[in-house]
Design a protein around this nucleic acid. Structure first.
Lengths: 388, 388
DNA sequence: ATCAATACTTGACGAAGGAAATTATTACGC
DNA sequence: GCGTAATAATTTCCTTCGTCAAGTATTGAT
């Protein structure tokens, strides 16, 4: 009996959750290999998988051909039925809403964005409602099979209550965003910090899959970091975690707005780069794009500013590697539009300061498309369905 | 039927493990409060506790008097039967073995130490055998109720296999210490890195009790850090974790033996302090004790060296707080013999660089007696009995 | 065709934990 | 003193999850 969209929890038993999560993150797997991987008997996997197949969340793939001598019955791998259910993800920035619809595998089906003229709560909610309608009622007909929305906001966000305690860019204080967005859209809403959302997405669907520990560094106006340790996202006891941008790497460096000195962000954040480029050229109207252009054109002074910034980021990443020893590290963010100017210096800074075997930690440095942030929000929404 | 020492696992079910661990770390608790705390029914706690009481590991305390209006039946708290079983813990350093016998509550009953003239494996094992005999056959008669030994070694240690991959001070490579020590002593052996052992002890029996996340910083020749995040010890994917001593805090600081620059350890480690003091005074034979004496006597130059060291340690601690946001941080180690010279500067460095609410993280700065390291080893041994 | 090998399914069973009733022990009002 | 309310612990019964062992399904090799 196929269950309607709108029914309660997807899985009821821990075993079913484990099975579904494993297939979701690691791709099609046979029942036997799932049993091995999860430490269950194959009978338990069979029983856990049955209701998921009946509900249409899992499907049985065609038997794969077997090799080797004395082959037996071919395995019929379990795979996610990607279009069983869809999810909306929206990243809220100070001047724009970026939205996507993804399927169960977190593949983006549609995307859209809307400019924001007013970052006030009411205006944002109005635009959010329109954006969601546009996404769900457009071509594709996703409305009927969508019941969840994930929102990503920078700042101090309580995921369990859906409360935005403080968001500096939006100037929001204690906004009960989950309730408000649920009223406006009629969907079940999850709210998460943007960096944490992106980290979650990368951990479940990206390069962090299978890693017991994992770090994602975002470079841009701010420099942040999402951490997964022992398989779980790090939240920080006092609401602070992953503040790689405020690690002090230079005792004699510039003062930072946080009160510290020589913070990575005060050297390599976009505003810091712009400030230094203006000082260097004496042109007070110079923008970050100008600086990038000059550096690419061979301006040595500006090039040195980017080099120092990349080096500082590398030192911050080395601090992460030395302290928590993640299995891999991904570096991304808007700031990486200037990817080519940063990369070698990020790597050299990291390699210089990484201790012992920590240098072996694989470092992926790659710009992510902007809508990836919205996909992160959607990934958190998927997670809220699978592992509430 | 009381079970003999030597029997298999202590607890068979997760619930029993949870009950025992909670009583062990949080002190006497009634069944009802345990049920609340662990999310179990009180019936489940009753059932889990019974065999532990029968085996003599738990005891029922006298009912406590109740207060408030309409009081009911008084609770009879469950407590650890501390002298049910004893554990040996030994810290192995390059020139000494420090050993203790602790009870189930990790309280030290006896301690002893033996100098080492030869840090070779065979010589250490011989001395270890003598030390354990001395501890167990001396007054107290612990031999009969002791079957486990914990060893703490600095360096790269694999706790699951009991293999010492590399220990720089001892110059050991790939020593199967668990098997060898078991042969010599006849006890069940657990081997752990010394800083991790101390962190575990502090997490289960010290200031870290109840904290979801927790950091222990050790100051001495090296500067290290044990981390507990999401309730579990951080191990590091590439064998590196907690290397707070090799975070770079000063781009223009001294080069470190690790290849980095401005490492905390290269500024604040005991050898770095001595080196700077010798340079400052021009006396090449000066020791760390001389330096401490001069600084306490008011020598401003030497005082400044300690001040800079404390500040660097504070910056390293701030990096930990900014990245993982532990609920609390304890600072200790041999280096804290010069406690008074470091403390205020550690605090000011931390407060200057801690981001936002991270400054609220409580910081305990206190010297630990040297045998505390051995107690850490014993605590790991207790843990291996309770949660294998 | 038969056999060995592998994948999956089924049904009986055992163990863990929950719900609710029962027993135990206290304070309080009368 | 004695019921009554309140809280703690236990007991009994029951559900549920997952394992075990036996059986079914599907392949390649002989």
């Amino acid at each position: 009996m196929a269950t309607e969209i709108g029914a309660g929890a997807l899985t009821e038993t821990p075993a079913a959750t484990a099975v579904f999560t494993a297939v979701l993150t690691e791709g099609p797997l046979s029942r036997v290999s799932l049993a091995h991987r999860l430490g269950l008997s194959s009978a338990a996997v069979t029983k856990a998988a049955r209701p998921l197949i009946e509900m249409g969340y899992l499907q049985e793939l065609a038997a794969t051909e077997r090799t080797g001598p004395g082959a037996g019955r071919p395995a019929s791998p379990l795979a996610i039925q990607a279009d069983r259910e869809f999810f909306v993800g929206v990243k809220i920035t100070g001047d724009e809403l970026i939205g996507v619809v993804v399927d169960l595998c977190a593949d983006v089906r549609v995307s859209a964005h809307r400019p924001l003229t007013d970052p006030g709560v009411e205006a944002v909610l109005t635009e959010l409602g329109r954006l969601v309608d546009e996404l769900l009622d457009g071509p594709g007909g996703y409305r009927a099979r969508t019941r969840r929305l994930g929102l990503a906001v920078s700042g101090d966000v309580d995921r369990t209550t859906g409360l935005v305690r403080y968001s500096p860019f939006l100037q929001w204080h204690n906004v009960p965003l989950r309730e408000r967005a649920a009223e406006v859209t009629g969907l079940t809403v999850t709210v998460e910090n943007d960096v944490k959302a992106l980290t979650t997405a990368e951990h479940w669907f990206g390069e962090g899959v299978g890693a017991e520990s994992f770090a994602l560094v975002t470079v841009g106006t701010g420099i942040g970091c999402g951490l997964v340790v022992n398989g779980r996202l790090v939240s920080g006891s006092h609401g602070v975690a992953g503040e790689i941008g405020h690690i002090g790497v230079d005792d004699t460096g510039p003062a930072c707005h946080c009160g510290g000195r020589g913070c990575v962000e005060a050297i390599a954040g976009t505003p810091a780069i712009v400030r230094q480029a203006r000082e260097s050229t004496g042109r007070p109207e110079l923008t970050i794009d100008d600086a990038v252009r000059l550096a690419r054109g061979g301006d040595e002074k500006i090039g040195a500013i980017f080099a120092r910034g990349g080096d500082a980021i590398g030192l911050g990443i080395a601090a992460v590697a030395n302290l928590v020893g993640p299995a891999r590290i991904v570096v991304s963010g808007e700031g990486l539009a200037a990817y080519d100017l940063f990369e070698t210096h990020i790597r050299s800074g990291f390699e210089r300061q990484a201790f012992g075997a920590a240098v072996e930690c694989p470092l992926s440095i790659r710009p992510l498309p902007f809508e990836e942030w919205a996909r992160g929000a959607a990934a958190v929404s998927i997670q809220s369905l699978v592992a509430p």
